[in-house]
Amino acid sequence: MRKMLIWLPLALFLAFFALFAGGLFKPDDRVITSKLVGQPLPGFALPAGASDRPALASTDFATGKPRLLNIFASWCVPCAAEAPQLEALRRAGAEIDAIAIRDARDDVDAFLRRNGNPYSRIGLDARSSVQIALGSSGVPETFVIDGKGLIRYQHIGDIRADDVPMILDRLKDAQ
């Protein structure tokens, strides 16, 4: 018993050493996978976010056809930078809906006049409640929603030009 106890500190230290070494050489996490992937969209019904587009509700998604859900805001600079990529996606046949976060309808209208409007429907989430339910932590983010209304993919940050084919593939996979 005493024999065992004598070696216990060394054994504990070796365990810690392994832990340290593991932690030190493990690469940082750069890709975060949402827990909501595979789950249905949370239920919501938002008022219209722009004056020339209809409002958005979760029931608009389970239509049998995959859609993109873009989360943006008129006060968000990367969202403006992302606009050409969304336009390219729309021209490639993607249907895009949007939720404007902590925004006002006049500001959204002005933003869409400046940067173009690739959206079919726009909801206004003035208090970020839907955004939080979606597990989104910032703008812009883009979700791929399949025809049954299940979340298939979450893209965090703006969509870059080289991301466009990948997003289109994800949409195809969600058929």
Binding site: I6, P9, L10, F13, L14, F20, A21, L24
Partner: peptide, 20 residues
């Protein structure tokens, strides 16, 4: 970090082994 980790292994591990 890995340099200090090596030092830890030598000194703490060595002292605990000597203890045992």
């Amino acid at each position: 970090g890995s340099f200090i980790l090596a030092l830890l292994a030598i000194y703490i591990g060595g002292a605990l082994a000597l203890f045992g």
